[in-house]
Design a protein around this nucleic acid. Structure first.
Lengths: 232, 232
DNA sequence: TCTGCAATATCGCGATCACAAATCTTGACC
DNA sequence: GGTCAAGATTTGTGATCGCGATATTGCAGA
């Protein structure tokens, strides 16, 4: 953050290189910058980033521990190819975890938190109307986690994040079928219902709304997207 | 696995060193071989294992990505010190995930699977009567995962394993209060009720039994064990 | 005995090198 | 033109080295 010192100097950032590489890869993965199935090699990536391959290897280790990168038999890593089956499993886990988190959060949210959530909600609606899929996904992430953050269980948030790291890249396929008019994506988007339920302090309804949002989004992806193994 | 070849030679195992180190650390962590708060340095561990520090660093990266090791501000890692708060959060997540997994598994288990589960169950009962806490924990792990394995959702199993890596070391504290007579641990152990519910194909009851088993075990630990920050 | 401080040892981090296995390229031969 | 094997290149893996920062130790003075 380069804070100003009394001498007007900025602080040297001591963030390790492997950490920067890791964060950069997470960003790239979640924003769908890599193609599923793409092979990543430490040396090439290192050259591209201007580092040695050591920090890249560290980042690879962390990412494949979280299943955000898939290990290949020979030790290489690749961007995971998600099958329809695995996608369904991840969706099922999401409904369980995110449904529970929403339910818990609803009971703990107060006025201040609610205002921030409302802001994220309207920004999400706006993004859908504007038609930028990247912006929509970013706002979708911000909105949902602005709720989960209040579930009072840091461990649960961590697990949800790991699942998002796996599905995240694939959510881009939500765009398919909405190329002409992204705003109609709001037909399968229940985030305003979620906000309404939270305002009414109705935890069960909030959970149901989030689950429905996740399930219908996933169903749409399963209809539209091409999965490996399926005939093209 | 050192398969026999046609010349009677055993295959050179090509498992990378960093993988072996990782597996060794997982085993040591889950069996409570390390003290919470203990600092682990790559160089020392490498010397002890007879390798360079590179494979150890790789293993550290993976383990701290999964939160099985805690990163220190200077980049070192330590065996996580679990607070009462974090323990409660992990328990809450466990009831959600393992409850769901049990419910799903109950609907998919057939006669063959059931026989294996029954065997694990009786071995667990036996271990409690024999009074060896290590054996009991090992059998407890084997029994529960023999159920979860059939939930049909590989992703869920992975998440459960992640959570177990964090609580695993701490479950040893279950022994506290049962030093004289481990068999009385069966009073807060509902694994036979779980088996009965599965046999009856009653998914809801199976979930309730697992949740109760987890909750009462955790409650016992919270009563008996010493947590950092608590007066003691 | 306790406290401050300097000398020393240890450690994380990243670069570089060596080696073997895997992968790709090339070109001769059928 | 297609096949396959030899050679070249790339890649994972692990060891070693150096740098800077941190932690530890040892000692002197109060």
């Amino acid at each position: 953050m380069a804070d100003r010192t009394q001498f007007g100097l900025s602080a040297i950032d001591s963030v390790p290189l492997h950490e920067k590489v890791y964060l950069e890869l997470v960003r790239a993965l979640m924003s769908g910058q890599f193609t599923p199935g793409q092979k990543l090699t430490s040396r090439k990536l290192a050259k591209e980033l201007g580092t040695s391959d050591m920090p890249v290897r560290s980042a690879f280790m962390r990412l494949q521990a979280l299943r955000a990168l898939s290990p290949m038999p020979n030790g290489s890593v690749e961007v995971p190819v998600i099958s329809a089956d695995r996608f369904s499993q991840l969706t099922a886990v999401r409904t369980i975890l995110e449904g529970s988190a929403t339910e818990l959060a609803t009971k703990r949210i107060n006025g201040n938190n609610l205002r921030a959530i409302r802001r994220h909600s309207s920004e999400l609606t706006l993004a859908a109307r504007e038609g930028d899929i990247d912006d929509y996904l970013r706002k979708n992430y911000a909105f949902k986690f602005s709720i989960y953050r209040h579930c009072g269980n840091e461990q649960m948030i961590f697990l949800i994040e790991t699942v998002w790291m796996q599905v995240g890249p694939f959510l881009r396929n939500l765009a398919m079928g909405f190329e002409d008019d992204l705003s109609s994506i709001l037909d399968i988007d229940y985030h305003e219902e979620v906000v309404a339920a939270i305002e009414a302090q109705d935890a069960a309804r909030a959970r149901a709304a989030i689950v429905r949002d996740i399930d219908e989004g996933a169903a749409h992806i399963l209809r539209q997207a091409r999965f490996p193994g399926a005939r093209g």
